[in-house]
Design a protein around this nucleic acid. Structure first.
Lengths: 340, 340
DNA sequence: ATGAAAGCGCTAACAA
DNA sequence: TTGTTAGCGCTTTCAT
C-alpha cells in the first residue's frame, strides 16, 4: 500500500534551519503563546522554505488526539445523501467544525465488516468522537462505541430511555402543535396515519397526536388511527382505510411527509378535495419533498440547528469525560402550506 | 479537545501477558508469517483478554502508512448531485475497499479554508491517497495534491490534456452512438443543445455529435447547435430556439439529462410530440432523473465500474510512485426509452 | 521462530 | 523565552 513519500521535512529540520530548538518550532506551529515575535518569524520562514507540514501521526501519538471527528451514515441513510435532510445536517456539522481545526470525516457503515472496521478505526484513535445519523433501533454501533469509551452523539434517539448522548427534535410537541393548528382552523374529526410502532420517532408523533386531541378536549377514537411504515405507499393505503372506516374525518396527520404524499393520493383517489374537504399535515424528515410537494404543510425540524447542537454536545462530552449523557431536544416549527 | 481515553492496553502489555516479545505480537496482529501456531494462539488469547486494539497513530508513525483514503466532494457537487450518481460511486468505492482493510473517508471541501485544512490533513499522512469527484476546471485542489506528491485520482477530467490520473466515461463515443441510433431509427435532421463550452465534458459530447453526423454522412449545420449550460432551464430555452430556427429538426441530442428534461418541456410547449415528431436523448449524469423522468432515453455512464476503476487506479499509483499518470475511459451504454 | 533494540516525528514537562 | 529530554505505541531490522 502507499507509503508516505520520503524526504518530507521534519520538525527537527525546521528547527535546525531556523536555528532554534524543536520545542520552539512546536510552539510556533501550535500557535502557543510565549514565543518572541522575531523567533516566530524565523521559524515561519524556515517552515515556508522547507515546505514543512506536520506529521499528523506523530502529533496524534504524542498528543493523544486526532483532531478529527467522524459522522457515520448507516445503510438506510446514506442513499439519501443528495437530499436536503442529509446535506443540511452535514453542512451544519461542517460549519460548526470549520473554525475548530477539526477535520470532519464522513464514513459509510453498511455491513458488519464495515462496522467492525470502523470501530477499530475509531478505537484506534483516528477520531476523537463520533456523530451518528438516524440510527436504527437494532444497530449495535452506538453501544459498541459507547462501550469503547468513545464520545458519541446520536441524531435522533432510538428509544425513550436512550443511554447515550443525543440530539432530537420535539416530535411530540410538533404533532401536538399540528393537531392544535387543525383544531384552530376548524377541523373537528382529525385522524392520523402512523409510522411503525417499533420506532420511537413514530411513537412520539402518535403520542403528540393523542395529547393534542386531549388538550383540545377531543375524544381519541382508535378507529381514526391507522398504522403505516413511513413509506408513501403505506400512507396511501392507511389513509384509504382511514376514510373508508371513518368518512367523517376532515383532517389527517401523517407521521412523515412521505406518508403525507400517499395520503394526498388516497384522498384525491377517493374524490376528496384538499384542503377543502380534508386537511393534511406531514413531518419534513426529508425536505426534498418540499421541492416535489411544495404544497404540503409540514412540521419542520430545524436540521441546521440540530447539526450544530451535535457538534456542541460532542465537544462537551469529549471535554467532560465524566460519561454523563446529555440530551438536546429542539423545537419544531409548523410550516403552513396549501394542504391545510 | 478530546483525548484518547487512558488505560488503553498497549502491545507491550499484550506481549507481557502472553509471555512473548513485542515483535511477536506485532507479527500476530499483522498476520505475518513465521509465528508458531501455539504462540499465535497465546497472543490472541492475551489480546482478547485485554481487549487490545492497536493504536493507529503509532502504527502510522512507524509504518508510514495510513490505511485510509479520502473521497473528496467539492461544493457544487455534493448539494446538487442526485442520489444515485453519488451513492453509486461511493458505494462502488466502498465495495472495492471493503476487503482491503483500507478505511474510506468522505470529506467535504467547500471553502478555501476547508481546502487548506484538507490538504494539511492529507499531507500530514492521514490518508494514503485521494479520490476526487467531478472537480471543476478552476479548482486548484487536484494540483495542490499532485504537487504535494499525494496519489490522486479524478473522476472526470477537466481538460483534454489533464495532467493527473483520472477515470472518465467515453462521452465522445456516447454522443456518437446516440447520433448513430437516431440515424438508424430514421431521423434525418438531428440538432443538439450543448453544455457550456468551457467544460470539457460538454465539448466532448459536442464532438461526439459532430463525429456521429460525419460518420453517417450527414452535414453539420451550425444552426442546429444551440448552446446551454447543463441546466433544465437552459435546455428548455436552447431547444425552443433550436426548433424556432430549424422547425425541420426531428431529433435533439441534449448534453445532459437535465437539459433533456428542458427539451421535453420546450417541445411539448411548441406542440411537438415526443417521440413521434421529435426524438430526445440525454446523458444520465444524474440518474436521479430516472426516477422523475423514467421515459428519457439516455447515454448511461457505468458509475459502479467507474468507482471500482478509481480505487484500482489509486492503488496502482500508490504502489508505483513513478508518478506516471494513468487514464481509464469507460464505455457508455445507450438506454432506450420512450423518448426515441 | 522469536527477542531485543532502534527509530518513526511529535508534544509536553522540565530546566535553564 | 527557549532548549533539552523523555516518552507516545508501533514496525522493522538484526541477532539469536
Amino acid at each position: 500500500m502507499g507509503r508516505q513519500r520520503p524526504g518530507t521535512p521534519t520538525l527537527e529540520e525546521v528547527a535546525a534551519l531556523a536555528g532554534v530548538g524543536r520545542g520552539t518550532v512546536s510552539r510556533v506551529i501550535n500557535n502557543a503563546a510565549g514565543v518572541r515575535h522575531s523567533t516566530r518569524m524565523a521559524v515561519e520562514r524556515a517552515i515556508a522554505e522547507l515546505g514543512y507540514v506536520p506529521n499528523l501521526a506523530a502529533r496524534s501519538l504524542a498528543g493523544r488526539r486526532a483532531d478529527a471527528v467522524a459522522l457515520v451514515m448507516t445503510e438506510p441513510d446514506w442513499r439519501q445523501f443528495g437530499e436536503p435532510f442529509f446535506s443540511s445536517v452535514v453542512g451544519a456539522v461542517g460549519d460548526a467544525l470549520t473554525d475548530t481545526g477539526v477535520q470532519l470525516l464522513l464514513t459509510l457503515v453498511r455491513t458488519d465488516v464495515e462496522r467492525r472496521h470502523f470501530v477499530e478505526y475509531a478505537r484506534g484513535g483516528r477520531v476523537d468522537g463520533v456523530l451518528l445519523m438516524s440510527v436504527h433501533a437494532e444497530d449495535p454501533l452506538p453501544d459498541m462505541l459507547s462501550e469503547a469509551g468513545l464520545p458519541t452523539v446520536l441524531l435522533g434517539r432510538r428509544s425513550g430511555d436512550e443511554a447515550v448522548t443525543y440530539v432530537d427534535a420535539d416530535n411530540v410537541g410538533g404533532a401536538r402543535g399540528a393537531v392544535a393548528h387543525l383544531v384552530r382552523t376548524g377541523r373537528t374529526a382529525i385522524g392520523t396515519v402512523t409510522g411503525p410502532p417499533d420506532m420511537y420517532v413514530a411513537r412520539s408523533r402518535l403520542r403528540g397526536y393523542r395529547e393534542g386531541l386531549e388538550r383540545a378536549g377531543f375524544e381519541i377514537r382508535p378507529s381514526w388511527i391507522v398504522e403505516g411504515d413511513f413509506t408513501q405507499e403505506s400512507g396511501r393505503r392507511a389513509t384509504a382505510e382511514l376514510i373508508a372506516r371513518a368518512p367523517e374525518v376532515d383532517a389527517v396527520l401523517a407521521a412523515s411527509d412521505t406518508m403525507a404524499a400517499g395520503a394526498l393520493e388516497a384522498l384525491r383517489a377517493a374524490g376528496r378535495r384538499v384542503p377543502e374537504d380534508v386537511a393534511v399535515i406531514g413531518f419534513d424528515d426529508f425536505p426534498l419533498a418540499q421541492h416535489t410537494r411544495p404544497q404540503l404543510t409540514t412540521v419542520r425540524q430545524p436540521l441546521e440547528e440540530m447539526g450544530r447542537a451535535m457538534v456542541q454536545l460532542l465537544f462537551d462530552v469529549m471535554r467532560d469525560s465524566s460519561g454523563a449523557w446529555r440530551h438536546v431536544i429542539l423545537r419544531t416549527e409548523l410550516v403552513e402550506r396549501a394542504s391545510t
